[in-house]
Amino acid sequence: MEIEYVHNKKKNKKFYLKLGLFFAFVGIFSLIIYTSFYGGFGFTGSVVSESSLVGNSEQKTIDLNAELTSPELDLSGFFEKVEISGGGESYLEIGDQKFYLGNSNGNYIILNDYDGQIAFDGKILSNLKGRASEIIINGISMSSQSKDTSKVNLQSPFNYKLLELGNQVQIKKVSYTASGKVNLDNGKNEISITDEQITMGGFKGHIKSANENIILSGKIQSLDISGETKIHVDV
C-alpha cells in the first residue's frame, strides 16, 4: 500500500511538473504574440519609455513637430525639467511634507532633474512618483537641504492646465488614434490627420501638453499613419 502511495505521489509530481512546463510555454507564447502582433502595452496609447531606448547617437532620425490630440502616456526615466500648472483636490508629497494643491487652480510646480514616473492624458496628471534635485512650488523652493534629491509623490490625480517635459524625453513607441498636424523635416512635409491611427517610434525631444492637445518637438526614427491617409516613414 505504502509503495503504491509513493509511486502515485511520484507520478503526480511528474504530471504537475509537465503541466507547469506546458503552462509556462503557453504563457511565454501568448506574451510574444500579444506584444509583437497586437502592439503589446502600447495598444491603448500608453507607453513606458526607458532612458536608453532610443539607441545610439548614430541612429538615423528625422525632425518632428506635431500638434495632436493628447494620448495617454505613462513615462519613466530621467527628465531634465518638468513644469506643471494646475490645481485640484490632491496633495503633493515632497520628502516628509505634504502640499495641498486644491487652494488654487494656478499652482506652478517645477521639478528639476526629475527621475521617476509620470503618467498623464489630455487633462489629468494621474501619476507623479520619483525624485528631483530641485522642487519649486509657486516660486518657493521646497528641496531638501540635507539630501541631493527629494522624494516626490502625487497622492491622487489632478487636473493640469499645462504640462511640459524637457529636454530629451524619450518615448520608445506610442500608437493611438489622433487628430492634428504633423510637420516633418523642419516643415518640408506637413500632414494633417483626422481620427487616424498614428504610430511614432523612437521619439526624443520636448513634450508640452495643454488644452487636451500635445505638442511634440524633437526627432523620431519612424512614423506610421493609417486611416484615410496612409503614410510610412522609416529613417
Binding site: 509556462a24 506574451l31 503589446g40
Partner: peptide, 13 residues
Amino acid sequence: EVSNLALRLVVFF
C-alpha cells in the same frame, strides 16, 4: 517588435 521581456523569457526557458 519583440519585447525584451519576451525575449529574455524565451532564452531563459
